[in-house]
Design a protein around this nucleic acid. Structure first.
Length: 229
DNA sequence: CCAGACGTTGTT
DNA sequence: GTCTGG
DNA sequence: CCAGACGTTGTT
DNA sequence: GTCTGG
């Protein structure tokens, strides 16, 4: 899964962590604690020359053949197990892989009578790099739009307490293998796997994150009494 | 040949 | 765009 | 992911 | 219940 995440801190962090140049529009990106599908969010792409650039792309992939953009909301995630065959993803998987930077992400655990959101962040306080795919779609009016999706895999042991799926979180040393057009399908396919449990820590948060109109650092604060919310 | 689908999540 | 079903 | 809408006609 | 928007 992974349908909501946070990305905060100075944008220069992205330059350092991903060795990427920052596009002018992405440079204006401010701290976000409730990033949701349909929004413009920073994504790392690698040009054939090897240069990496952070651009703002819209979350929710629109395949090139789509007649309209309504499919986007349903393609905010892509199952890692079937990427290579699915018509919606296979061309992007072959040649348009990207990395989605995140400070952390949210996961909703089903509990009696509702759902309890949790915030999951890197144990080392660095940034996550989610494995992603991107596409360029041109509307009937002729307007091009770049979109992305987050690749998912089965949950590792600690995530399984919340949910059966989780985003593919790349090891920093694997960034280039995922982004490069020179990597063989066999090698970048091996990166689609649950990350080690030790990379993650998690805590329950307020249900306020459920509404995309809510925003701010309080959304990642530990909730004192999750059961009573 | 043309028409129609093409996806994920979670929940039932 | 490309594949499947009819 | 959750929240919120869930419609038609004609006209701009 | 199901789809769209954020």
């Amino acid at each position: 899964m992974c349908g909501r995440y946070a990305l905060y801190g100075p944008v220069s962090r992205l330059r350092e962590r991903f060795s990427a140049n920052i596009d002018e529009l992405a440079a204006d990106f401010g701290p976000r604690y409730n990033a949701a599908p349909m929004q413009l969010l920073p994504v790392v792409r690698q040009r054939p020359s090897g240069e990496r650039v952070v651009h703002l792309l819209r979350w929710g992939l629109i395949p090139g053949w789509a007649k309209d953009e309504t499919i986007a909301t349903r393609l905010s995630n892509a199952r890692g197990e079937t990427l290579a065959e699915k018509p919606a993803f296979r061309t992007a998987y072959r040649s348009r892989r990207c990395i989605v930077p995140a400070s952390g992400f949210y996961e909703w655990k089903a509990i009696p009578g509702g759902k309890q959101p949790y915030y999951i962040q890197p144990a080392n306080d660095e940034l996550f790099g989610f494995a992603g795919l991107w596409e360029r779609w041109t509307s009937p009016a002729g307007t091009p739009i770049d979109t992305f999706t987050v690749v998912t895999t089965e949950a590792n042991e600690s995530m399984r307490a919340l949910h059966e799926r989780m985003p593919v979180i790349l090891q920093p040393g694997d960034d280039n293998l995922w982004l490069s057009r020179d990597t063989t399908p066999e090698r970048f396919g091996q990166l689609i796997a649950p990350c080690p449990d030790a990379m993650l820590r998690m805590h329950p948060v307020s249900k306020a994150v459920g509404n995309v109109r809510n925003e701010g650092p309080q959304l990642i604060d530990a909730s004192s009494d999750p059961q009573s919310q």
